[in-house]
């Protein structure tokens, strides 16, 4: 049986918002060490991986591994009906065909229980190899969101170039071009670690979708290496992270 309590529904809302634009259905795998989710988008261009460790939960118990096939739009509807500061407990039996969500207001004066039907999903699980990234950039998540939004006005493709001098985002389209450069700051709000310089091209639409995770974290980590997907990682408090991988565009 699974029993997992989030202190605030707001966090679960943010997690669902960070997932639902990129994947519509996915399996949440629950074990005694926490919850994991991994899914490709429909076009198999990107992959999202969510990890929530037990440390973050107010209460966590999972006696036997449970896989919960979720429809994220439905989950979003249920979560939306609760107040952000409600506590929420997820409960599922060992061979569950439904997930119970129990919301409890601060002073316990209001409780709301929802049963969500689970799906039988047959999902491929992909192995993500350990990668030594050539460039690792950390910046405020709001800055990254702003850059992705501004870039996608100009072109479908965004070129990311990273050198010791800084990281540059470029877009070139019918209406003109845009270049935004960021350099390492002494304040430490932007850090750039470069083993070797790299230039890669990515679909701006996906980068923009990843920034739905911005409310989860003040910081975002962007990792690049030659001939491997881009990694965009948002930490989630004491729980873990949400990671987005995006396959590069290559010259024809």
């Amino acid at each position: 049986m699974l029993e997992a309590r989030f202190g605030e529904t707001l966090l679960l809302k943010k997690i669902v918002d960070a997932l639902k634009e990129i994947i519509s259905q996915s399996t949440l795998d629950c074990t005694e060490t926490g919850m994991q989710l991994q899914s490709m988008d429909n076009s198999h261009v990107s992959l999202v991986a969510l990890s929530l460790q037990t440390e973050g939960f107010e209460k966590y118990r999972c006696d036997r591994n449970v896989s919960l096939g979720l429809d994220l739009k439905s989950l979003a509807k249920v979560v939306k009906s609760a107040s952000g500061d409600d506590a929420v407990t997820l409960t599922a039996a060992d061979k569950a065909d439904k997930l119970l969500l129990s919301f409890e207001s601060d002073n316990k004066s209001r409780t709301a229980d929802y049963e969500l039907k689970l799906l039988n999903l047959d999902q491929d699980h992909l192995g993500i190899p350990e990668t030594n990234y050539a460039c690792i950039v950390q910046m405020p998540s709001s800055e990254f969101a702003r850059i992705c939004r501004d870039m996608s006005m100009f072109s479908e493709s965004v070129v990311i170039s990273c050198t010791k001098q800084g990281i540059k985002f470029s877009a070139n389209g019918d209406m003109g071009s845009a270049n935004i450069k960021l350099s390492d700051t002494s304040k430490g709000d932007i850090t750039i670690d470069v083993d070797e310089p790299i230039t890669q091209s990515f679909a701006g639409r996906y980068l923009n979708t990843f920034t739905r995770a911005t409310p989860l974290s003040d910081r975002v980590k962007i990792c690049l290496a030659p001939d491997v997907p881009l990694l965009v990682e948002y930490p989630i408090e004491d729980y873990g992270y949400i990671r987005y991988y995006l396959a590069p565009k290559v010259d024809e």
Partner: peptide
């Protein structure tokens, strides 16, 4: 001209 690659070509099925 660039072409979009698939994420499944980098990460193999387990």
């Amino acid at each position: 001209n660039t072409t979009q690659t698939s994420i499944a070509s980098y990460f193999k099925k387990e």
